[in-house]
Structure formats: structure tokens, C-alpha cells
Design a protein around this nucleic acid. Sequence first.
DNA 1: TTATTAAGGATATTAAATATCCATAAGGAT
DNA 2: ATCCTTATGGATATTTAATATCCTTAATAA
Lengths: 163, 163
Amino acid sequence: MQLRNQVEWALHCCGILAGVPDGRYLPTKALAEFHGVPKEYLSKALQALSQAGLVESTLGPSGGYRLARAPEAISFLDIVEAVEGKASTFVCTNIRFNNPCVPKGDCTSAARPCAIARVMWEADKAWRDRLKATTLASLGQTLMTDLDADTRTRIAGWVADHS
Amino acid sequence: MQLRNQVEWALHCCGILAGVPDGRYLPTKALAEFHGVPKEYLSKALQALSQAGLVESTLGPSGGYRLARAPEAISFLDIVEAVEGKASTFVCTNIRFNNPCVPKGDCTSAARPCAIARVMWEADKAWRDRLKATTLASLGQTLMTDLDADTRTRIAGWVADHS
DNA sequence: TTATTAAGGATATTAAATATCCATAAGGAT
DNA sequence: ATCCTTATGGATATTTAATATCCTTAATAA
């Protein structure tokens, strides 16, 4: 079980979009170039972010994408779910009802979801809760210590130049 | 991102194997029949459990599988990882190094894994920690309240008859 | 008017999941 | 000894999802 590469791309793109100057937009072409990924396919990930309401877009020259909300209000979970969907990682096909020892159309046990599925769904929730706990703002804080001042300045300049 | 159906099958099979009488084995055929899944393919999941050391097998008539350890000592994580592998759900391809603003061969930022990957890996760990917290013994306890006494008796009888 | 851009549909390519089948070797039953 | 049952593992087929690429359309700014 592996997340798509578009999840990685979307997270990095949002991290960059958090640094776009107010009122400006950064186009797909720049984001693709910056991250070294194919522009056409990255575009699909950005469209998913747009449909999820995480980013706003505008057309024409000087068009592109920007965050639709403050970095504090966009979590990793928002981004992951925009690309991967909200469906649980565990799909229960209720094979328990194939069990020859359970009467057909049993209502007692059917009332509650499968015990195994309940555990798997709790684990899925633990994963999502952790993703929800980190925002683009937290990521920005982390990058302040991860990257040296020179690099941060160069990135800010590059983004300003392309937006 | 979705877990394989073999994960669901493996979990249910281990739940049943936990009820196999001491010194007996339950064959693939019985497990496949019980769960209504294709025997040949289920066999691959059982082989994975065997290779992970979670179950033991023996050949010939009255052969099959049984748990290799006590139900208290087998977690959901053990079973999930036996089938899905131990690799993280998030794969970092380090696209940060494609960034034109980071000097080539930068050692400062390379010393630490990507900030985005670190968050994704923590979420992956939260998922695994939750899976590790539930064992086949806990599952057995849950089923005591999920299933009525008659059904539990019928299942125990069916397993005894086929092992 | 022209160049630039996002949106979205169509299609191709590649990889993974989901099986099925068969040969082999080992263990019980007769 | 012989035969039936079983796990193991390899080979292969089928289906589905991931990973793209291309093209048309419509909107926007210069």
C-alpha cells in the first residue's frame, strides 16, 4: 500500500504556494520546473487541490494558483485527501457473512460493523488525526530550522520572480 | 490508497486459527470455504503469514495451518505487515533536491530527511502503533460480545470438525 | 488581437493487484 | 509400498489502478 507520487507533489506545491506574495499567482509551469516533475501530470494534482477548495486559480498571463486559505487553515490531511480521496485505507467486504455458521440475514451481528474492520478503521483514523495535526504553517516553521537563511532567501526570490 | 483484499482475508483467517484446538491444523481448503474466497489465492496470503513466522504449517492429510504463537503475541500489525510489507505508505523521492535554489550536493539540508516526509512518516507510525495495540486475543474478546453464544458454539464446532 | 493559462476529456503506457494453474515434495492412511 | 492430501513456490493470465501525455476549450491579461 503506497500513496501516489501526486501526494508528495501536492504537499510540496502547497508548501511553495504558502510563500507566494499576496495577490499573486504561481503557474503550473513554475511549480513543475521548481520540483522537476512533469507539468501535465502535476496539473492533475493541482486541479484536485482546486476542486477541494484548497487553492484558487486564475487564467491568462500572470495566472496560476495560490492558496485559498491561510497556511494555518490547511492541514496535511486536507491535501492528502484532496489527492487520494477520503475513503478508508481498509475496505471491508463483509466476508464474515460467508461464514456458514452465521444464519443468513442475521440482524444481531449485522447491526455492528465487522470487529476486524472496526480496528482497521480506528488505525486509519489515527493516521488521519496525525495528518490533521500538521498544517502548512507548521511546515513553514519546520523549514525555518531545516533550511539556512540564504536558501530561504533564494527560494523567496525565485517564487517572487515567477509569480 | 487501499490495502489488498488479502489483508482482510489474512486477518479473518488468523481470527479463526486462534480457535483451532491444540495440536490440530486447519487446511487452506477449510479457510477458503469458511470465508467464501478463492482457495488458490488465499493460499498466497497464508504463505505470507507462514514466511513471517505467524503461523506454522504441516503437510499431508490432517495438515494445514495453526498459529505459531499465542493470540496475545500476534498483533494486527504483524498480520498487516506480513501481507503488505513493512515499507512506509509514503515514499519520499526527494524532489526537494530538484529545487533550483538549493545548491547541488547540499549537505546541510541532506543531513535531515525532507520535512514533509518526516510528517508523513509520523502519521504512518501512528497508524502502525494503533495496529500494534490490538492482538488476536483482543479480537477474541470483542467477538465474545459481538457474537451470540449459539453462533460462537457453531463456529467452534465447525472448526473442530475441519481441523 | 495575441500569448498565456487552467480545466477537463481522451488516450496511451506501465505497474500492481488479483487471481489461476501446475509441478514438487512431504506427511498420513490404507 | 501405495495412494491421497496438503503446503510451497514458480509461471502465467487477467483486471485494475497509477502514471503519464496530448488536445480542445474558455478565460484573462498585455
